[in-house]
Write a protein that binds this DNA or RNA. Structure first.
Length: 332
DNA sequence: CATCAGGGCCCTG
DNA sequence: CAGGGCCCTGAT
């Protein structure tokens, strides 16, 4: 292993998220698999980011409270940041981290929901989070497919070690994602050597689409959800399950109900939802169409956010308190 | 040792 | 539209 790239310049800005904002529940998601481009401890999240080709180290620190939140953002870089670069970077961070998401209507509307009400009370100020670019998220979606969590972790780690950039900042070492040409130019055999299996073809074709400008995240942001969905499904190796996550996490649609086909809840999710919403034995789950109809009727307009709250609450309890019935459903 | 499913998707018939 | 195949890994 060679030396990491040292990021020796740093500057700090203060961000003011829209209240309520709960730092740890937003910046740390126990259900996301751990990856070596980020780290968390209470009140702090480190996250690498590549912007306009430059590898950067971000550090978010909690300031203030849920009702009067502030976040100190420190940015480490190789070269001193020039004002136009810094301005575009901050715009991008504001988009990705969506600290300005206003939860007040959501909180009001579901305060009395028997399942969601108590969860909102417990996690008031929790916001969804995606730190990655569309390309990076697609890579993650590909390594998630048809694999256990442990294997997904090892595939992403192998990709980081081969194509990523190891960064040193703030006394830490974290990997930064590569850019699409790195894998567009790699051979399928080389990728298969990293034990990604048949996903090598998907990784190459998705990387090629970005490297050759066939798909552009920023152009897509301005398009409709239907057009975004079409463009994503057109990518080799990207199907409805991945697209469902991306429309919510990357393009910030809180409710995918309109385009959510009836088979979009995967079997392991179906079992968990059946237990949570109907207290049903995971081995005898509620039909997917019943689940989807229930979500639509109960959470219409906020389906994605409602499910996110229930999901995060469950995984937090599983990790910190133990949830016996869930152990069997999560294969590490 | 063999078999199988796993946080899907593509391709074929 | 249904179903087989796909890379690999760990569980059984």
């Amino acid at each position: 292993m060679g030396h990491p790239v040292s990021l020796n310049h740093t500057q700090t800005v203060e961000l003011v998220p829209t209240a309520p904002f709960r730092f740890d529940a937003t910046l740390h998601k126990p259900d996301h698999f751990p990856s070596s481009d980020s780290a968390w401890e209470p009140g702090v999240r480190w996250q690498t980011m590549r912007w306009r080709g430059a590898p950067l180290g971000l550090k978010f620190e909690e300031r203030g409270t849920v009702d009067q939140p502030r976040v100190a953002l420190s940015i480490w870089s190789q070269e001193e940041l020039q004002p136009p670069f810094a301005a575009s970077l901050l715009d991008e961070i504001v988009y990705r981290y969506r600290f300005d998401l206003d939860l007040s209507e959501f909180n009001r509307r579901f305060a009395d929901d028997p399942l969601l009400g108590p969860i909102i009370a417990r996690w008031r100020g929790l916001k969804p989070l995606n730190c990655n670019s569309l390309y990076e998220y697609l890579v993650i979606a590909i390594v998630l497919q048809n694999a256990t969590v442990r294997r997904s972790v090892s595939m992403l780690q192998a990709l980081f070690e081969r194509y990523g950039t190891r960064l040193a900042y703030d006394g830490r070492e974290l990997y930064c994602f590569w850019e699409p040409p790195a894998i567009d130019g790699a051979s399928e055999e080389e990728l298969r050597g990293l034990k990604v299996g048949y996903r090598a073809k998907s990784l190459k074709r998705v990387s090629a689409a970005f490297a050759q400008g066939e798909i552009n995240e920023f152009a897509l942001r301005a398009k409709s959800r239907v057009e975004q969905r079409e463009a994503l499904l057109g990518l080799y190796g990207i199907g409805p399950a991945s697209v469902g996550y991306i429309l919510g996490d990357v393009f910030h649609h809180l409710d995918e109900a309109d385009e959510y086909p009836l088979d979009h809840i995967s079997p392991w999710e179906q079992k968990i939802y059946s237990k949570l919403f109907f207290d049903r034995d995971p081995d005898d789950p509620v039909a997917v169409d019943v689940l989807l109809r229930t979500f639509d009727e109960r959470f219409g307009g906020y389906r994605g956010l409602a499910v996110h709250y229930v999901w995060e609450d469950l995984f937090w309890r599983w990790k910190h308190e133990g949830v016996a019935w869930l152990d069997r459903l999560i294969r590490l």
